[in-house]
């Protein structure tokens, strides 16, 4: 699956703020670390602020801090600020009756959506920080491919 750029940027920012609970970080600092657009990240941080996840202070010494509880805040909470996740996201729309093939395909896609939602909902920001510290990919024989996100140098 692929996350939208805004969702990925939001997760980078939230993880960065959660990893530095005693500091306020500027959008410029976060954007530089991930090589992403400052302008785009600023918009993402504003949306996270409106969602009650981060708080920003202007001026010298200003910056952002995480105000949500990282033990309770899940990946789903962050992603859903920017894009729908789950059955609603792929809805065919309208009240048109589905053909049998469409209905059968819908059942399979809903199955995948249910797994996606359950996975994002079960992983808190604190769990992500622990995962990042443990680096299980370093011990795995599986070849890890780069994450398939839309994030990148913008």
């Amino acid at each position: 699956m692929k996350l939208q750029k805004a969702s990925s940027f939001a997760l980078f920012a939230v993880l960065e703020l959660a990893a530095n609970p005693t500091r306020q970080l500027s959008g410029v600092e976060i954007a530089a670390k991930y090589g992403i657009s400052v302008h785009h990240l600023a918009k993402v941080l504003r949306d996270l602020g409106r969602a009650g996840i981060v708080d920003g202070a202007r001026g010298v010494g200003g910056g952002y801090r995480l105000i949500a509880n990282p033990k309770r805040l899940t990946l789903l909470d962050v992603i859903q600020v920017f894009e729908p996740v789950g059955s609603d996201s792929g809805a065919s729309g309208g009240l048109k009756a589905l053909t049998d093939p469409e209905s059968a395909l819908r059942v399979i896609l809903d199955e995948l959506d249910d797994h996606t939602v359950a996975t994002f909902r079960s992983i808190s920001i604190s769990t992500m920080l622990k995962l990042m510290a443990a680096k299980p990919w370093a011990h795995s024989s599986r070849v890890f491919r780069p994450a398939r996100t839309a994030a990148g140098r913008a």
């Binding site: 797994h115 079960s122 769990t127 299980p136």
Partner: peptide, 18 residues
């Protein structure tokens, strides 16, 4: 169970993965 968010989150916090 997929909808058992509480225990699923617990196991995830212990490092369990799919």
């Amino acid at each position: 169970a997929r909808d058992n968010h509480l225990v699923l989150s617990f196991f995830r916090s212990q490092g369990m993965m799919a």
